[in-house]
Structure formats: structure tokens, C-alpha cells
């Protein structure tokens, strides 16, 4: 074939990478991938290998992605651990945007009220007993947190819950619940999950030490404001 091959396999220090051409038709891609795997029977005998698939500017829907994965699995002793593409759908983008957004609330969350967000939550007010706040990311309360709070609800163990006054009726991070302690107050503290999976409390000044990623939260706010300026 004189044309540029649709499938190139390269070995990198991170393992095998399959570069799939983004110009040809999907069917061509599949048949060539199949041939390539057949031509290299050494894959079949080696130990189980994790590979990365680089799609370039091609977008695959879930079904197509599954087809590629299955083909690689069937033809070789290989498992696709990562699919990389330079394009994202608007939905994925919107989801990512929502998850990194900081929702600000200038009110007291009272008994019976529920505040939900996919991103992070910043409340300038109290959360009273009987009130519930949930977030996909972190929860910060610049007041007293006396109600229930659930951070990292989509399974983010790195999420934290911080408040000027923490005396919550219930705290949940990801799927870990705080042990029930009656009438305990934590001033200027935050709750987090330690490496052993326990929910613990620490002073606020330790926040960046324990969660250095929070530094990027500030730049993500900046990024969003730029985004909102774009048409």
C-alpha cells in the first residue's frame, strides 16, 4: 500500500500505543487493525498487555469504541486501558465544565431545603439542622454547618468539607460517613478522607498540605470566567 497506514503501533515507555489514522473510513480502520494484529502474532503469546489507543481527531461513539476494544482484545493478548481522542463532544465538555464549576450561594440553607450541584459548593451563610447540601466536588461553608453535607457524591474521595463552624448532624464524603458524635464542634476545620479510608478532621491551615490540588481550583475559576466571555 502506497498510502499512509491507517494503524501504527509504537512502543513507548508507558507501553504500547496504537495510533489510528483519523482520515480514513471507520471500516477501513477496523479491517486494517485486524490485519495488523494478525501479522504480529508475538502479541498473542506474551503476557497480558495494557495498551493505549490514540484516535487523533476522530470521534468514536460508545458502540464504535466498544468495537475497537473488542477487536484488540480478541486478536491479541491485549487490553485497552485508555482511549485518547483530541475531540470531545459538547455534552462531555458541558459535564466537565459543570464538575469544575464553583456554585456560590448567598443564603442560609434552612431545614427542609436541599442544595445540589455537580461541581463545588461555596455557601456564604449557615446550613441549619435539617438542611442538606450535596456537591460532586468540595463543600465550603462560610458559616456554621449544622445540617447534613455530602461532598464528592460521584465517588470523589479527594473531596473535602470545610466550615467556619463544623457541628454537622451528618457528613458524607464519597461513600464514607462520619462516625456519629453528639454535640461536637470543630472550629475552622475541614473533613477529609485519609489514605486509610477513614473520615477525619483537620485544621483549615492544613488544607493545601493535604489537598494540593485545591490550588488549581482558583485557576479553574479564572478559566470559567474566560469561558463565559466566549460566545
Amino acid at each position: 500500500m502506497a498510502a499512509k497506514p491507517a494503524v501504527t503501533i509504537k512502543g513507548t515507555k508507558d507501553g504500547l500505543v496504537f495510533y489510528l489514522d483519523d482520515r480514513c473510513a471507520f471500516d477501513t480502520l477496523l479491517s486494517e487493525l485486524k490485519e495488523k494484529l494478525k501479522d504480529n502474532p508475538q502479541f498473542l503469546n506474551g503476557p497480558l498487555l495494557h495498551v493505549t489507543v490514540n484516535l487523533g481527531y476522530r470521534y468514536l461513539d460508545q458502540q464504535q469504541e466498544q468495537e475497537v476494544k473488542e477487536l484488540i482484545r480478541q486478536e491479541g493478548n491485549l487490553i485497552v486501558s485508555k482511549m485518547e481522542s483530541l475531540v470531545v463532544t459538547k455534552e462531555e465538555m458541558e459535564k466537565a465544565r459543570q464538575e469544575s464549576e464553583v456554585k456560590m450561594l448567598f443564603k442560609t440553607v434552612r431545614s427542609g431545603q436541599v442544595i445540589e450541584t455537580q461541581g463545588h459548593l461555596l455557601i456564604l451563610g449557615d446550613v441549619n439542622p435539617g438542611g442538606l447540601v450535596t456537591a460532586g466536588g468540595h463543600i465550603f461553608v462560610m458559616g456554621a454547618l449544622r445540617g447534613r453535607a455530602h461532598a464528592g457524591k460521584s465517588g470523589n474521595n479527594d473531596a473535602v468539607i470545610a466550615a467556619s463552624l463544623l457541628c454537622p448532624s451528618q457528613l458524607i464524603i464519597s461513600s464514607t460517613m462520619s462516625p456519629i458524635r453528639e454535640n461536637e464542634e470543630y472550629k475552622q476545620q475541614f473533613a477529609f478522607i485519609d489514605p486509610s479510608g477513614q473520615l477525619r478532621f483537620a485544621k483549615l491551615y492544613q488544607l493545601l498540605e493535604l489537598r494540593p490540588d485545591l490550588k488549581t481550583l482558583y485557576s479553574s475559576i479564572d478559566h470559567q470566567s474566560l469561558h463565559s466571555l466566549a460566545p
Binding site: K107, R110, S111, G112, Q113, N128, P129, G130, G131
Partner: peptide
């Protein structure tokens, strides 16, 4: 007091 808090929320 709890019920009063709920009511204040419902009045919002």
C-alpha cells in the same frame, strides 16, 4: 426552633 427554621425557609 427546628420548625420555625423550616417555615422561614418556606416563606422565602
Amino acid at each position: 426552633v427546628r420548625d420555625a427554621d423550616r417555615i422561614i425557609g418556606l416563606l422565602e
